[in-house]
Amino acid sequence: MTSTMTPESNRTGTNGRLPDEPKVAPVSTEPGTRAEPVREGPPALLIEHATKRFIVGKKRRPVVAISDVSLRIERGAIHGVLGANGSGKSTLIRLISGLLTLDEGRVEVFGHDIVREEMAVKRLINRVSVDAAFFKKLSPSENLSFAARLYGMDAKAAAQRAVEILARLGIGQKRMGRPIEQMSRGMQQKVAIARALLTSPILLLLDEPTTGLDPRSKLDVQIFIEEVRTEHNATIVLTTHDLVEAERLCGRISILNDGRMVAEATPAGLMAMVARDHGQPETLEAVFMTYTGRSLDDDLEETGVTDDDD
């Protein structure tokens, strides 16, 4: 990681990195725990001084959604991005996805510039957003066939793979032919994850993938995310409001507040920082409250009002 910024560290000029803090996630090869990110070759994701503004309202007021954000994520990592609603998490994901253009800065995915090598980057990434976006009248099979063809895959091979992925997520083959609108929200989200994995992305952008899922579905998805990282060697960027999920899955976590990256470290490192520098309890909720200036409850209440972080 190249940037670890806190208000305190910026004042001291150390750019926030704790002297004794490792640059990559702790190593563990036990099942269900974090594996070592790979530091050879270009990073999975490199963001340098990314800035994005929107013009809003009748007065055409410029609003800075992402401000001078820099981030480096090594291959094989699961990197969490936390922040309140409106902090810029989804905007950041959209910038990486090429769904928004940068005003300033640059983004590279496995060494490919997202502007100059747009098609190459698109083949390497996929995204799951908070709302499972499908043609709801079509079946999972039809939606996944569409996705497979878009990515140049053979439809028959893709169909077989889709069955395997969905079975792993607890969706049987008999559900494959029914319209998606007849599925629960949790099942739709699992199909969305299956669709993303179908194209074998090596950078997977998960934008609140478990929001609104029941505990069982949430756990299924979380286990599957870990499997994807270990078995498919994918790098994952995960935005979430679920701090337990973030602590469980993420090797490192960045905190966004008002479009700025205000802290970045391992979960343990972040908790140690708030305990040491702010006298707060060593919990991720304390981290969230300290760096975003609000409680998690405030944020979750707003989730019901707006589904977007822009």
């Binding site: 959209r94 996805s97 090429g98 769904l99 098609m119 698109k122 083949r123 990434i125 996929n126 995204r127 957003s129 709302d131 976006a133 499908f134 043609f135 709801k136 996705a147 878009l150 990515y151 140049g152």
Partner: peptide, 12 residues
């Protein structure tokens, strides 16, 4: 349908 972003993200 909400699929516009997905389609626009695809390498097409």
């Amino acid at each position: 349908e909400g699929t516009l972003e997905y389609t626009m993200m695809a390498p097409v």
